[in-house]
């Protein structure tokens, strides 16, 4: 019973990271209708910028965190300008944009790898152990021990999600985003600057993805140029599960996938945790491609 609750808490903090990450995918998909496979590289950059800020510039965590988010957001905007906009201008197929985002991902990961080699002489680096006090918080009445990092992550992630919800529903630019997501041409007719909305969307997606990456680094204390690959397919599964382009779906999907992973580790050992996720991805696509919260894509003749 103890371990079950304990694992549940682990699943929630992991789920918070996945959800933040998946939100970036979902936002770009809902507004531009394309899949940005370079989002996992942005995730990695979040962790990388955090590492540089803490390890090289000796900044405190509370400062490193916004730097990582901002840096990831800016690179994400760069993606829009370099990998997506030129193709959109040419009316290229969605698949071409998928391919260019794969190219961008490879480029970012490899450039980061070169920088890693320069700085650390290896493709791996560690964050200081005492970054966050590691004495677990003990909740006697429930018999629980919770690591402060995990608490912190869940709290910040929830704050970010609430902020996003507020932004999309209450602030003008958020309303414009929804208008563009609904119909680009009509939004443009109403005088909305669609290009600006796209840039803003990529920025937000990058900020969220960067935050997720930074968290990931802080939890595992280990950063490599390849951590994006760990989560790329997990994030995809999360949005497919929740419904491509559905914002609440991405959050739900992130938590469900994390729960499933932790559950399958408990049941079958860690080597199966990804197999279970991909199997789920496969099955969802086959029986309910619109996901749990998505609308079916109409097949008009």
């Amino acid at each position: 019973m103890d371990t079950l609750i304990q694992q549940g808490i682990n699943a929630i903090s992991l789920g918070a990271i996945y959800s933040l990450f998946a939100l970036g995918y979902a936002m770009v998909f809902s507004i531009l209708g394309v899949l940005n496979l370079a989002h996992s590289a942005i995730f990695m950059l979040g962790a990388f910028f955090g590492l540089i800020a803490i390890d090289q510039w000796s900044l405190p965590l509370w400062l490193a965190f916004p730097i990582a988010m901002l840096g990831a957001g800016l690179v994400s905007v760069g993606l829009e300008l370099v990998a997506f906009r030129p193709l959109r201008r040419r009316n290229a197929a969605r698949i071409s944009q998928l391919i260019s985002s794969i190219g961008a991902a490879i480029l970012i990961v490899n450039i980061t790898q070169l920088i890693f080699r320069q700085i650390y002489n290896s493709t791996e680096a560690y964050l200081p152990r005492d970054l966050i006090p590691s004495d677990p918080i003990v909740i006697e009445s429930l018999g629980l021990r919770v690591q402060p990092v995990r608490m912190l992550i869940v709290v910040i992630a929830l704050v970010l999600m609430v902020l996003l919800q507020y932004l999309v529903n209450r602030v003008r630019i958020g309303q414009h985003m929804r208008a563009v997501a609904f119909n680009q041409r009509i939004a443009a007719l109403f005088g909305i600057n669609v290009s600006r909305i796209f840039i803003f969307t990529f920025f937000l997606a990058g900020v969220l993805g960067g935050a997720a990456g930074m968290f990931y680094g802080v939890v595992f204390l280990n950063v490599t140029p390849f951590i994006g690959e760990d989560v790329a397919l997990i994030g995809l599964t999360a949005i497919v599960l929740g419904g491509m382009g559905s914002i609440p779906g991405a959050v739900l999907g992130g938590f469900l996938v994390a729960g499933l992973q932790i559950f399958s580790i408990v049941i079958g050992g860690s080597s199966f945790r990804n197999a279970v996720v991909f199997l789920l991805l496969f099955i969802i696509l086959l029986i309910r491609p619109q996901g749990l919260l998505g609308q079916p894509e109409s097949t008009r003749a």
């Binding site: 394309v34 899949l35 197929a93 969605r94 698949i95 998928l98 397919l233 995809l236 599964t237 497919v240 491509m244 080597s271 199966f272 990804n274 197999a275 991909f278 199997l279 991805l281 496969f282 696509l285 086959l286 491609p289």
Partner: peptide
């Protein structure tokens, strides 16, 4: 089953297939 899916969805499903193959090979003996 998968070829009913189109563009991005088919891409994701086939990526998933590749990963399942990889993980199955990893754990085949076990």
């Amino acid at each position: 089953p998968t070829l009913r899916l189109r563009d991005i969805y088919l891409a994701i499903a086939t990526i998933g297939f590749g990963e399942v193959v990889r993980v199955l090979i990893l754990n085949f003996d076990d």
